[in-house]
């Protein structure tokens, strides 16, 4: 079995994986980092979104070995322990989360947007989150949360 050697949220890991194992399976089942969720396992819903070397990806359709020698960041790693990222604070205050199942992927997608475009328009936020499904909120409060985080940052 190939050995996957990578960093997750700043920590180094070495895991034996099958060539067909996905990054999501390694994160969840081997490392038990559970903020990335399995909503579809076919790349359609965005609940498994994480960063690979700073870029937003869907870990359910990414072969684990693609992350070899790379750095993965999940929601657990976006803020120093005990602190909140402005997005986390904004989702909390603006009720951008209901059941919470889509929230990790949603915040990661929003984070990817704000990293590139710190002052997005409402339309840009909607487009950036268009690959992330939420069945609870109706999206309005999610968009408001991202807007609030963007305003607070600047």
């Amino acid at each position: 079995m190939p050995i996957l050697n990578f960093r997750v949220n700043g920590k180094r890991y070495e895991v034996a994986v099958e060539p067909t194992t996905t990054l999501l399976e390694v994160l969840r089942e081997k490392l038990m980092i559970t903020s990335p969720k399995m909503g579809c396992n076919t790349g359609d819903c965005g609940t498994c979104s994480v960063f690979l070397d700073g870029k937003l990806i869907r870990s359910c359709i990414t072969a684990a070995m693609v992350a070899n020698q790379k750095e993965v960041t999940t929601l657990e790693g976006i803020a120093p322990h005990g602190e909140f990222d402005p997005l986390q604070q904004a989702f909390l205050e603006n009720h951008g989360t209901q059941c919470g199942f889509c929230t990790p992927g949603m915040i990661m997608a929003a984070k990817a947007l704000l990293n590139e475009n710190p002052k997005p328009t409402k339309q840009e936020i909607k487009e950036a989150l268009s690959g992330n499904l939420c069945r609870c909120t109706g999206y309005k409060k999610i968009v408001e949360s991202v807007q609030a985080a963007a305003t607070q940052k600047n």
Partner: peptide, 23 residues
Amino acid sequence: KRKPKYEGIAHVTGETQFVDDMF
């Protein structure tokens, strides 16, 4: 008034443990 959500902190930090998150 807008009140903080009961399990909100766990949701935004990813600490909420859904059934599939239990090993």
